[in-house]
Amino acid sequence: MTRNLLTDVAGISVGNAHDEALASGATAILFETPAVAALDIRGGGPGTRDSALLDLANTVERIDGLALSGGSAFGLETGGGIQAWLAAQGRGFAIGDARVPIVPGAVVFDLLNGGNKKWGRFSPYRDLGFAAAENATTDDFALGNAGAGYGATTANYKGGLGSASTTVLDGITVAALAVVNAVGTVTVGDGPWFWSAPFEENGEFGGRGLPPAFTPDMRTARLKGADNARAGENTTLVVVATDAALTKPQARRLAILAQTGFARAIYPAHAPLDGDIVFAVSLGDKPVEPLYGLTQLGMFAANVVARAIARGVYEAHALPFADTLPAWRDRFGT
């Protein structure tokens, strides 16, 4: 049974944790066995943990998990919580008798969304990461106001956590998970239509299609914080996973191809104020032809990224604070 979630790729579990008063949270993506991984960064303001490990020139090829979080740089502690949980399970990169869980990660900025960020000496993100890892499941998981997407926003509507999957190329599965906190919009103007509409499947984000015509207002830039140039309040994080057998360089190419999904779903994408990132992970042993096969896999990966981004906004609900952004559902229902 397919769930239209990242967990449709065998060997992946996803867990979420959040704090309502904080208005922020964390998402843990765990792998049953170490996964081949790479990444591609296109945004101008990324916040990452252990991203250098995923460089093609560096030694480590496989990782034990990924940490996604709110909290800007404070949220980088999320990876430590996930790492602690994995260490307790005896997981990690073996160096002699020592084992070090490898948990790269990335964060979004949600510090000005109305929640109480006065946490004292230490931020709560390490504990949120541990809780997210404890909650990890290979089954269904929540979208919208969940995990790292709990406090996310876009320029005009509440953002959130989204996911989508598809099966292609004689049985290969490719899926995406997105934390949507973009500087731009995921909708066409302020209407009910999503830029991702041509790639929607089974009415997964409302089935509204595209507008009958595009007006100049729809093409006008709607940018979060443009009125006071508060840089860095943005970023969309994506994890793309597949059960195709890929090398680390092939995973990097998959991440590059998957970035096309940002451009299909967000207007604009990859801005100086964004920290847009795609992590690509390979689990399983299904062969893929290295030229045309990998190209097609990347094409479908971009499609599921675009769908996951739209679902992150479609599934979200407004935060319970004064002067917060409305949710898409507040305006248009389901």
Rank of each mutant, 00 (worst) to 15 (best):
L325C: 09
S165Y: 06
G70Q: 11
T48G: 00
G184W: 00
I277Y: 08
D8Q: 12
D170I: 04
L210N: 09
E204D: 11
A98Q: 14
Y267P: 12
W119S: 04
P211Y: 15
K117T: 11
N58P: 03
A73G: 08
V304D: 06
R3W: 13
L39P: 03
T247H: 03
T138N: 04
L66D: 08
V305W: 09
M218G: 11
A231T: 09
W195F: 08
G232P: 07
D8W: 08
P268N: 12
L30W: 14
P326W: 00
F214K: 13
T187Q: 14
G149W: 05
P198A: 03
N135M: 09
A306C: 05
T187L: 05
V60Y: 05
S72Y: 01
H270M: 06
P212N: 15
V100S: 09
L283W: 02
G203I: 09
I277G: 01
G184F: 08
A35N: 08
A182E: 13
G162Y: 02
A182I: 08
L237V: 04
A132G: 10
R311D: 15
A244V: 01
T27K: 02
E289M: 04
T48R: 02
T138V: 01
A136H: 12
T185A: 15
G75M: 12
R329A: 14
D50Y: 09
F122L: 14
E233L: 07
L53F: 04
L22G: 12
T166F: 00
L128D: 01
V238H: 03
G96L: 02
L5H: 01
A133K: 01
T2D: 15
I309T: 05
W193F: 08
L53C: 00
G225W: 04
V103T: 03
D190E: 14
A244C: 08
E233D: 13
D323P: 15
A88P: 06
T242W: 05
V179E: 05
D285W: 07
L30Q: 14
V238C: 01
T33W: 02
F205Y: 10
